[in-house]
């Protein structure tokens, strides 16, 4: 029991402390240069990396955004949970598109060797392309969509990048359906539809959920890039805006927020995944 607590609480905390101290050690610090009379003549930053905000600065500067997480003071000055919410809504939409396209595509790949030979090389080429590269293409595609062009481009990017793990895992899952189960279907002369709904989909679900979890992670990665380039309000848009506004503390704050939200999403999906693996 004690050992358990040590493993999951103490050791991670030690790790965090080490990183925080290194960060604080190399980060800059604000000092005031005074003249002989004690009047401030100059304000400057010193340290190994003078412009990197230190732990205390980051904390004090971020506090208002945490204290009032749902505040809306302006388009780009809102509480952090409100920003996160905007991002999550957009991710949810893009992710839904990714799954709706990805699952059938995965089934086609898994079921048809011809289809695989035709499209697999293309998928392997498109899969490693960064969200940052897709977004400009999305903007061009939806250029004539008016003021919503940025949103469509963002959805396009999220869906396209987030789709691949679902596609590939579904395909692997379909190929891995035990021959025994297919034989049962053949002996019973199940229709194509029944074969799909009663045997193929249930047998593939555990693989599909692994894909869904990985896809969600990538969709969340893509949102930041999409918001940065389109200037939408959200966790990623905030980060880019604060960089331009020279409030570097908020960059670190945004990074931590994005990371934490990503972690929570992944854990939630793991729970769902575990449930499905347990029942099948």
């Amino acid at each position: 029991m004690n050992k358990f607590k040590f493993d999951w609480l103490i050791l991670p905390l030690v790790g965090v402390l080490i990183v925080l101290s290194v960060w604080h050690g190399v980060a800059g610090k604000k000092i005031f240069v005074t003249d002989a009379a004690g009047a401030i003549i100059e304000e400057k930053r010193i340290g190994l990396i003078p412009d990197l905000p230190n732990v205390v600065e980051t904390w004090t500067s971020s506090l208002p955004y945490i204290k009032e997480p749902f505040a809306k003071r302006g388009e780009m000055d809102q509480g952090i949970l409100r920003f996160t919410w905007y991002s999550l809504v957009l991710v949810a939409q893009g992710y839904a598109i990714a799954l709706i396209i990805g699952v059938p595509l995965g089934f086609f790949l898994g079921l048809s060797p011809t289809f695989t030979k035709m499209f697999d090389p293309l998928i392997q080429v498109l899969r490693p392309v960064s969200p940052l590269a897709w977004l400009p293409l999305g903007l061009v595609l939806f250029m004539r969509a008016g003021p919503e062009a940025g949103t469509y481009a963002a959805l396009f990017t999220i869906a396209l990048c987030g789709m691949w793990p679902t596609v590939l895992n579904t395909a692997v899952g379909v190929r891995a359906v035990p021959q025994d189960y297919l034989n049962v279907g053949r002996v019973l002369k199940l229709s194509r539809w029944k074969m799909l709904t009663k045997i193929l989909i249930p047998a593939t679900l555990p693989y599909m959920f692994t894909g869904f979890r990985l896809s969600l992670g990538i969709s969340w990665l893509a949102i930041v890039a999409a918001e940065m380039l389109t200037g939408r309000p959200g966790a990623g848009g905030f980060l880019w805006q604060e960089y331009n506004a020279l409030i570097y503390e908020h960059i670190i704050f945004s990074i931590l927020t994005i990371g934490l939200v990503g972690l929570i999403l992944d854990r939630l999906m793991s729970l769902v995944e575990a449930r499905f693996k347990a029942t099948s």
Binding site: D180, Y181, N183, V184, V187, K198, I199, P202, T279, S280
Partner: peptide, 14 residues
């Protein structure tokens, strides 16, 4: 033809 397989081949989700 009713087939009884070596592994019973029941579908685990049913």
């Amino acid at each position: 033809r009713g087939v009884v397989f070596q592994a019973p081949c029941l579908l685990p989700w049913f």
